[in-house]
Design a binder for these strands. Structure first.
Lengths: 253, 253
DNA sequence: ATCATCTTTCGATTATGCCGAACACAGTTC
DNA sequence: GAACTGTGTTCGGCATAATCGAAAGATGAT
């Protein structure tokens, strides 16, 4: 609504997508604005260190203030705060990595990540943004999203050969999620990795995010599959209850 | 310069400081604007999920998009990327937690955190914002900051009984840092914890951040103190070299 | 049921941000 | 070394676009 803020947000988004450093000209092309306009916006954002300008090249990048804000968001996130305990216990029970995520636009944002108890050399994925259609967490959320249409507005890119990118396939998958209350993904986001997730609801019964396990496909989808499904479902239920969700009924048939 | 963007940034900052959820009225008081103005800005920020409104209370909080941006900032940070290896090797050598940080406003932002090799149950501090005057990392950066005055504009709060908050004390400390090239802090940020840090420079010899170890005061400042000082200094030198800093000369006497 | 407090809408006034054109500076090419 | 293409940046007038007072909904408390 407020034009210049709208545009500033577009610039931030452009800087956050892919190429980390962009010049004024490049940005003005991407957001479709005149160079002086972009320049003025950048200078304002720079004041607050939301962007920084490289002294050498003159190009702009995101600034440290956005990291600070991101951290503040995590600190204030009720879903994250409430998930800490349940995620830990799920990680113990499943002996797998646990992710808690929420939806931002058409991407799934990882809010909390508990490493698999055994091995410790893993990359922390908090803050990572994954296309919703390529992961179990995304499917779990999307199935209960009030405005699904918006999720199909962005192009559905394939991350691996197994990623489902056809709308029909995805609609089918979402229907399955609604029926079982669970989402399962097999190497759609990364080769070798699978995911099992369930939606998490909050007050009013609206979906707030999802919780699930991530790990090697053969380990997740083999003989332990049913155990893991159960463990994830129970964690999601418990977490939803913590968040004040009404008793789940719709998730059953 | 662009008024509405400036104001939007103020709102984001207000939402990121302390209380995670604020109403329109509270925000309008804090930033000194009319309620409808704030409301318009919030609605615009909400579109991009930079803020979200709680359906129940109507209050506003930071949104998931800022976390995504923060993550993108980390991904694009040259200081962080280049520090990964050196931080790891420093953690091994010192057998302590290692932090890499940069300055944002008057706060030190942790960009990278390597856990102490031994114990693993630690909290990840990436994104944490610490007042510059209360930690070794902050002193190390501030000593070479081109516009130190700005750092004294915000009030210097005491985090522990040991925090130096008088300008004279801090100036003294900074002089010492400039003489030795190293900063040492003893329980000024958290009781029981100490820090040893050294500045990291980039092209043109400007300070880009700092690297250092953090841990129990008795372990850091006891008999191993000199070893740790040396280890930190060498890591900072190596990292600076990676970043293209000219050969360090000023750090000596 | 009334009140108090909150968020939100509306609309006119005018301050504000926008963009075309021009500038300064760098690195290339002839 | 001069001309050229590519930057990021400055300037200023015009018209849009943002601002704020007042008032209307919405919500929960007394």
């Amino acid at each position: 609504m407020i034009q210049s803020v709208e545009r500033a947000a577009l610039i931030l988004r452009a800087l956050g997508a892919g190429v980390p450093r962009l010049g004024v000209t490049e940005i003005s092309e991407r957001v479709g604005l005149a160079k002086p306009t972009v320049h003025g916006l950048l200078r304002t954002l720079e004041r607050h260190e939301l962007v920084v300008q490289d002294a050498e090249t003159g190009k702009y990048a995101l600034g440290p203030a956005v990291l600070q804000l991101g951290n503040a968001y995590l600190d204030g996130s009720e879903l994250r705060a409430r998930s800490l305990l349940w995620a830990d216990s799920l990680a113990q029970r499943a002996n797998e990595s646990v992710w808690v995520a929420t939806l931002s636009g058409s991407r799934v944002i990882v809010l909390h990540h508990v490493f698999r108890p055994d091995d410790m050399m893993q990359i922390l994925e908090v803050g990572a943004a994954i296309p919703w259609h390529a992961c179990a967490l995304g499917h779990a959320i999307a199935a209960y999203h009030p405005r699904i249409e918006e999720l199909f507005e962005e192009p559905l890119v394939a991350l691996t050969g197994q990623t489902r990118t056809e709308r029909e396939q995805l609609e089918e998958a979402l229907t399955a999620v609604r029926r079982t209350g669970m989402a399962v993904e097999d190497q759609e986001a990364a080769l070798g990795d699978a995911g099992i997730a369930a939606p998490v609801f909050t007050r009013g019964g609206v979906v707030a995010g999802a919780i699930g396990v991530v790990g090697p496909a053969d380990r997740l989808l083999g003989v332990r599959r049913n155990d893991l499904l159960l463990a994830v479902r129970e964690s999601a239920r418990a977490l939803s209850r913590d968040l004040g969700a009404p008793r789940v009924t719709s998730a059953y048939g």
